[in-house]
Every structure is written in C-alpha cells, then in structure tokens.
Amino acid sequence: MTDQRILSENSHPKPRWYNTIDPITKLLMILDFSLLSFSTHRLLLEAGFISVTFLLLLLSKVSPTTLKALGFSLFLILTMLVIQGLFYSKNQVVLLTILGVNFYKEGIIYAATLGSRVLVIILSTGFFMVTTSISENAKYLEQTGLSYRTIYLLMSVCYILPEMMRNMHKIQMAQKVRGTNPQKTLMQKLKSILPVLIPLVIKTLDQSMERSISLQLRGFNNPKRRALATPYHYRLAPLAHISLTMIAILLIGWQIWSKINLFL
C-alpha cells in the first residue's frame, strides 16, 4: 500500500545530481510543468513535456510506486480514449473503424490532450517523490521558516501509515482466526469491516492523544527549538525559486489574458 521505499530511506550514500536540487524547487517544477501542459492544446508540445519529465525520472531512479501510479492512469486514459473517441460531442471525422465501430478524430485528440496533461503531472510528481526523503523535506521546510506544527501536520502521516497498516493486519489476522463468512450484500460487507475498523480507529485516535501529550512533554513548542541542517548542499536554490515562481505567474497570467481576450 504505502511506499516502502520513501518510508525507509534513511541512509545517505554519496549525493547524486538530483540531491543538489532542493525540495521546494522540485515542487515548483511540478507546478510549472503542469501549467505548461495546461497552456497548450498541441499534442506535439505535450509529447515534448512528457519526454522531458520522463527523462528526468529515468535519469534519477524509477520506483514501483511511480509505475503503479502510471499504470493506473494509463488504464484510465485508455478508457477515456474509447469513451471520447466514440461519444465526444464535437465528433465529426472518423479516424478509424474497429469491428464496425467508428472512432472519431476530435474525441481521440481531446482525450489524448487530457491524458498527456495527466501524464506530465504524474511524471513530474514522480521525480519529486523518488528524489527526496521525508526527513530531508521536513528539515528543509523547517529551515525555510515553516513552524514545526505545520510540518508535523503535513509529514507525520507518512510515518503514521506504516504503523496503522501493521495494526490493521494484526486485527485482520485476529478476525480471520475467528472465522468470518464470505459476505454477499453491501450491508453485510460493511458490517463485516466494523470489527476491524472500530478497534483500529480507536487505537489510532488513542495514539494521537498520547502523541499530543508526549510532544508537549518533550517540548516541541519550545521557542528555543532550532532546525537541523539538511543532509545535502543545494545549489542556486533562491534563484531557482524566483525564476520558477516567475514562470508560474507568467503562465497563469497568460492563461487569464487569453481567456479575457476571448470575451473582448
């Protein structure tokens, strides 16, 4: 379920090229690539964006999670090509005929454009995912001035999940030993997950209570707290942030401007 790789990455071998790019730059890259792919309708350009983001991913490393996300989306894109190719409201020109069924050019192009955008987002997010670790992100965000509360809110899920999953498997095993019958109706199925879900929810909330007490006992909100250094040295981070943000603003501005022009 959860990405074991990003969860257990704690050793720091020698830095690779992508380690010299800071996490915020990588996040801004996702934003910029997504905006770029949304600002064009040309399939050739979309193909270009896909290649660039795919290359970034290939030059870093490929993780099973990214492949899973890709696989899921590719399947959806395929159904999108079928549905839009058949039924898109602006369909006029027949592109190909399979077993007597007509697939229209307009629908296929429409679905392909949407699909390309989805792929660009997945590939650029994949690059962020496989090249950063949770603790690196946490340390960097704290250095940039985010409060520990906010960072805890955003990142602790990644640490809580594996434990919840383990608890769930424990409870499920216990239920299996008790011998539950295969359920048929939705109501029966819903009822059958209650013996797993209720103890798990209570245990999880109990743990949150305890963690809330413990964090305060351990002084997490002490004003003297100082952020730790990140394991890597980043190059040109401020420049990258400014230029990527400028690009994002320009792309959004251009989009808004062209929409306004439509009405003028």
């Binding site: 809110l153 602790s156 899920v157 999940l161 879900l197 909330l205 743990q207 949150s208 809330s212």
Partner: peptide
C-alpha cells in the same frame, strides 16, 4: 495530532 490520524484512517 488528530489530523494526520484522520488522514491515516482515510487511507486504511
């Protein structure tokens, strides 16, 4: 501490 737990419950 409640919010990340809620997200975890969503996942599970």
């Amino acid at each position: 501490t409640l919010i990340p737990a809620a997200v975890g419950i969503n996942y599970v």
